[in-house]
Design a protein around this nucleic acid. Structure first.
Lengths: 343, 343
DNA sequence: CTGTTAGCGCGTTCAC
DNA sequence: GTGAACGCGCTAACAG
């Protein structure tokens, strides 16, 4: 190692030329031996590999990206990390990317469209090769940015009418409508709806729209008083909501919660108050938190294929990055109603 | 835009020279105007800003990093994304990093030391400026890699005897010991312990060691039959474990679960079987899943300051990257016993 | 199959 | 306060 200053704690790194020199080949041969070994003779390759091992050479992907104008980092933006429903999607994306030699950069928008835009800007400055956005409504600036740079983008979390590029999701509207209709079919007639915060959140609004649509389909009265907006998505909010609904509408026979934690909070509150579920009130949920399956009673819910969505998103992105033709896609992975004991 | 091929979907990007030319200044002035505006005259700065806005210029951080030998990307490796306990840490890290202009690259090791090493290698090749590892036992290669490159590293998830660099955590050993002692103080005498998988997981092993230590401290018999290893950390495993413990040890009066989901699974199973908690059996948990607070009965648990750990880790990293002197640190952020109705 | 040349788009360094 | 020259470490493109 030379005596050069080591700013930034980064020891003087071994470079490709160092390896080339010590292996007695040109840098280009080293480059090829590492990135596409089949284009190099066995003898050369072995010399390179030996030198690489000996010096513990780590290729500098920064330099590689600059030179090749290609990066292998995908940017993912989720509204928040705290919600477990993002976790299985992230896991799936991460797995697929890694299997294909890509890496994942991640940021959260805090449910703010402006923060989403800022994160996209920052990612684009890092020259990510692709983006996954858990959101389908964006600022004008963001749409412009994506259009101009031409990065492949996956939108998810909802099915947009006009995707920026590729969309992989399920329909919040259809899912909420289906569950509400399911409750109707089971004979429930006065069905409350507890929504997650609606501001800047198309997913929430679509779910509420689906609820209303189903009521109309069934010829049931649409009573806005039966709709409550929970301030957050926590257990306490679910508990508070079910109490308020039941107390203001004694004839309420079912409640549909737009989030799994809300539903669980409500169920626990019913337990505490001795309200029998589903006898006194039926409870249905959106999203299949594992817990809903193990609770007493187990909770009827909408199973969203979060993992498949993540996997498919990453696969589409990888294919595109590996050369697939650009193509505007809108893939609906659907949902499933899981009938259990709470309804 | 020129007619150059646009490989990789990346439109021909506007470069700093383009901006310089259109603003009638040198590229260097653009660089300064953007990275340290105070070193440039107002007039110049305004010209640059106008051109930047007009052309929607996005600086190329890849080129910047290569040139300056500095990056603003931190790498984080967690065992898995599926566990909510990582979520609050990730959120905190992400917030602190963003506030300081850093970005987050993320990978999961799947609880494998080799995969952790592979991820670190990949991150180092991307020239991340810092690392956070949720793990304190590593392969020899990894330790060597970190030493050689000199990247700042935070280890967390446990308190290592000899940190690689900086460690921010709580002690799994002390926490498990404290909870076991707490159960003893409450009068429980036959306390079962359900551990998470022990393989390649120092955290799990430390917790079990803490449990044994407390029993010895209290002069209680140490019965290996009272320790069960759950195959996974899910509800079902917790449920299965409590049943097995109770059936094989009729006199068991308490069970301590090394994971919050395990504990919850056990509680629900007790409910299903009509075993009163804590009358028939007391239940204590490790990690304060929100749910444990809302369940009936609410579950006694160990509160680990996951968010503070994330925040502090990121702060230490940022300080170091901003010039703080390297210093081997080992910060214990402690834990807290939350006594509730299940014990 | 291998090497040479010429950048990639910035920041550092040193003149002015 | 501003600019010119140079190089970061690698790969594309072409020549041999």
């Amino acid at each position: 190692m030379s005596g050069k200053a080591r700013r930034n704690g980064n020891g003087d790194a071994v470079t490709m030329s160092d390896i080339a020199r010590h292996a007695g080949v040109s840098p280009m041969t080293v480059s090829r031996a590492l990135s596409d070994p089949s284009t190099v003779s066995d003898k050369m390759r072995r010399k390179v590999e030996a030198a690489v091992r000996h010096y513990g050479y780590l290729p500098n992907r920064i330099a590689g990206s600059l030179s090749s104008k290609r990066s292998n980092v995908v940017g993912l933006i989720v509204p928040s990390f705290r919600n477990s429903l993002y976790a299985s999607m992230i896991q799936a994306i991460s797995d697929v990317l890694r299997a294909n030699g890509f890496h994942l950069m991640i940021a959260n928008s805090g449910h703010s469209l402006d923060d989403e835009e800022a994160a996209v800007s920052a990612f684009l400055a890092q020259r990510v090769c692709g983006l996954v956005l858990h959101n389908t409504t964006h600022t004008k600036q963001l749409r412009e940015l994506v259009r101009r740079t031409g990065v492949p983008v996956i939108e998810t979390g909802n099915l947009p009418a006009e995707p920026l590029d590729m969309a992989v999701s399920y329909s919040n509207f259809e899912a909420a409508r289906a569950m509400t209709a399911h409750l109707g079919r089971l004979g429930y007639r006065k069905i409350g709806f507890v929504t997650l915060p609606l501001a800047d959140n198309d997913r929430s609004r679509e779910r509420r729209r689906g609820y209303f649509a189903a009521l109309k389909d069934m010829g049931l009265p649409v009573d806005p008083g039966l709709v409550l907006e929970a301030a957050g998505g926590g257990f306490a909010e679910g508990a508070g909501a079910v109490v308020r609904l039941v107390q203001t509408h004694p004839k309420l026979d079912a409640a549909f919660f737009a989030g799994d934690v809300l539903a669980m909070g409500a169920l626990l509150e019913c337990q505490r108050r001795g309200w029998r579920v589903p006898k006194r009130i039926a409870i249905a949920s959106f999203d299949d938190l594992d817990l809903l399956h193990h609770s007493v009673p187990a909770v009827t819910t909408l199973r969203i294929p979060r993992e498949a969505i993540g996997r498919r998103s990453a696969e589409l992105l990888v294919n595109r990055l590996l050369g697939a033709q650009p193509e505007r896609l809108r893939i609906d992975l659907g949902f499933e109603i899981v009938q259990r004991d709470s309804t």
